[in-house]
């Protein structure tokens, strides 16, 4: 064949080859995660959900934000959680990041005590340790994840200091490295994020979330409210970081475009329940549940 001199496969370096079978154990195992706001009654879960068309319990008026959510997340994988406002997708990640207590359910993190401990039942101190060493979170609104009255560098330092990294020079080195990676000009390091643009605040937030190189990062509607071009830059950054660092991520978004771009697998949520789960391109290409079909058909 003319013009096609392609190195023989046998001579290519496959040392970096991953085991392409199912990775042994999931990095995060979630079972039956439930969060109910309100008094709770035995009817709360059975009388709410997609069939009932509501997440408000007719018996006691409690709000079932999410119920019975289970999934496995493998190392290096990106899981999407999609659904309309109020479907419980943000509650799900907030529970997993310990921002919100759970009503019921378990979660196991492979990197924490060999995955033998239900981290949702751990003490506040242990949860803080897990948050600071093994997890990162990027919230929809920068002020949720950043201290706007601390400098950009100080924000990153907070995460490092929480993990007992007490060396100003090295903190600044690491912060520069992260800001460089997230495309924030270094001269803004000692400025207050209060004066940054929305896109730059979001990138600082990402830098902060990555400060301790956590194996697991949650992203909650990170591009919502940004201009399209800024959105694209943030999404490219996330894709790039994922490729480079091999992070596992949970990406919450109501935007199917974001889900398609970033994720391998997807959970579709409605009124607090997972109505469909599977490979993202299958969910988008061949949705099974009526709600998912509606969602996909609504895609612009």
């Amino acid at each position: 064949m003319d013009g096609l001199e392609i190195t023989d496969v046998s001579s290519c370096d496959l040392s970096g080859r991953q085991d392409h079978r199912v990775p042994g154990e999931p990095m995060l195992r979630v079972r039956g995660l439930t969060r109910i706001y309100g008094r709770e009654c035995p009817d709360c879960v059975p009388r709410t959900g997609p069939e009932a068309g509501s997440n408000i319990c007719p018996g006691c008026g409690s709000v079932v934000a999410c119920a019975g959510v289970s999934f496995d997340l493998y190392a290096g994988e990106i899981l999407g959680v999609v659904g309309e406002s109020g479907s419980g997708k943000s509650t799900l990640v907030q529970c997993l990041y310990f921002d919100s207590a759970v009503t019921a359910g378990e979660a196991y993190l492979r990197n924490y005590r060999e995955g033998a401990v239900n981290i949702l039942g751990s003490s506040a101190q242990e949860q803080r340790h897990i948050r600071h060493h093994l997890m990162g979170m990027v919230y929809q609104k920068p002020h949720q994840g950043l201290r706007l009255d601390c400098t950009a560098g100080g924000n990153i330092a907070e995460k490092l200091l929480a993990a007992e990294f007490f060396h100003v020079g090295r903190i600044r080195e690491r912060a520069s490295e992260l800001l460089l990676r997230t495309e924030v000009p270094l001269e803004r390091m000692d400025h207050l994020p209060r004066h940054f643009s929305g896109g730059m605040q979001q990138r600082v937030q990402i830098a902060k979330a990555l400060a301790n190189s956590p194996p697991l990062v949650f992203l909650d509607e990170v591009t919502t409210g940004l201009d399209v071009s800024v959105q694209a830059r943030v999404l490219d950054l996330i894709r790039h970081l994922h490729r480079e660092l091999g992070l596992a991520m949970v990406v919450v978004s109501h935007d199917l475009g974001v889900i398609r771009l970033l994720t391998d697998c997807t959970l579709v949520m409605k009124t607090g329940r997972v109505v469909e789960a599977g490979l993202t391109d299958q969910i988008l290409g061949d949705p099974q549940h009526p709600y998912t079909q509606l969602l996909v058909s609504s895609l612009l």
Binding site: R17, Q18, D19, V22, E77, D264, L279
Partner: peptide, 13 residues
């Protein structure tokens, strides 16, 4: 096959 197996196969073969 489970989703993870499919993802792995897509990556490799």
């Amino acid at each position: 096959a489970p989703a993870q197996t499919i993802l792995a196969l897509r990556r490799s073969e």
